[in-house]
């Protein structure tokens, strides 16, 4: 009898301890009030409201796709940082470092997690868009957040694309060669784009292979050393940074627009 009582009090004692209370301010979330406090008092969980309409927590409604997209972004950030410990973005080392990541590093699936995770994120983002469309959730007052979402999708694709070059194998450079050659044809800004020839002073072309958008992206006239470095920096810092800003806006607006959409 006394044993049972002491067991109960163990959890309770833990919940009432100074350490626990300092972290989870409201004690063990048992009562309705405490549970709401658990959400509101946590910097991470207070992305959520404290209470939700019933349909919003059903898998069948949101498919959890937005949440999974964000989760994958976190997974990719962590595994990506791990990969950065071994990978050197130079033509000389990139390829061999990738091989070493599979063969010489314990837990040799870090690269797989990162690559398949990236593919999966493209998928979840598309499916998330599909569900938002099919539930009509893009309509007022959520028009702006739909727009932010479209930009997030574009950023996700660009993140994936910049990462594609880093293994520096045949697949990588040719996919990126084909992809970035389109930039060459940008109207006015690409050296083979319509209108580019108009931007000239007398005989001197302002837009040529050494001064167009493609050059700015590649850091050269073709996919080489400078490109690898530029893509590496964009992939590891530049684009994730932009993605995080947009995600913050996205999540903020979900709350401000009245939480998950639902019929009135």
């Amino acid at each position: 009898m006394s044993k049972k009582k002491s067991k109960q009090t163990l959890i309770e004692r833990m919940g009432n301890s100074q350490i626990w209370k300092s972290i989870i301010r409201s004690g063990i979330p048992r009562t309705r009030r405490q549970r709401m406090h658990a959400i509101l008092g946590s910097v991470f969980l207070h992305l959520h409201p404290a209470r939700l309409p019933k349909h919003a927590v059903k898998i069948g409604y949101t498919w959890c796709m937005g949440g999974l997209s964000f989760f994958l972004f976190v997974v990719l950030t962590i595994t990506g940082i791990m990969l950065m410990f071994y990978y050197r973005p130079t033509v000389e080392y990139a390829y061999t470092d990738i091989i070493d990541l599979g063969e010489q590093v314990p837990l040799g699936i870090m690269r797989e997690l990162h690559r398949w995770g990236a593919h999966a994120m493209v998928l979840t983002v598309w499916l998330h868009m599909l569900r938002v469309f099919m539930t009509g959730s893009y309509k007022p007052p959520r028009e702006f957040n739909w727009g932010v979402g479209v930009l997030l999708m574009t950023i996700t694709l660009f993140l994936s694309f910049t990462g594609y070059l880093l293994p520096w194998d045949q697949l990588a450079i040719w996919a990126v060669t084909v992809g970035t050659n389109m930039a060459r044809a940008t109207p006015f800004l690409g050296n083979e784009g319509p209108g580019a020839a108009m931007l000239a002073i007398g005989d001197i072309n302002l837009v040529h292979a050494g001064s167009d958008v493609r050059f700015a992206l590649l850091g050269g006239r073709f996919v080489g050393e400078a490109t690898l470095l530029r893509f590496y920096v964009l992939h590891c810092i530049g684009v994730p940074f932009i993605a995080m800003i947009f995600m913050a806006v996205h999540f903020w607006r979900i709350r401000k627009d009245g939480g998950i959409s639902g019929p009135l």
């Binding site: 599979g102 797989e112 045949q170 697949l171 450079i173 996919a175």
Partner: peptide, 28 residues
């Protein structure tokens, strides 16, 4: 994701060679 990563190795082809375009060459 872990099962997928264990079962399917991430692809790595031959080292980059700017002179030899694989046939067909596909974007991601």
């Amino acid at each position: 994701l872990i099962v997928w990563s264990v079962l399917v190795a991430a692809p790595l082809e031959e080292p980059a060679n700017p002179a030899a375009t694989p046939n067909p060459s596909k974007a991601p």
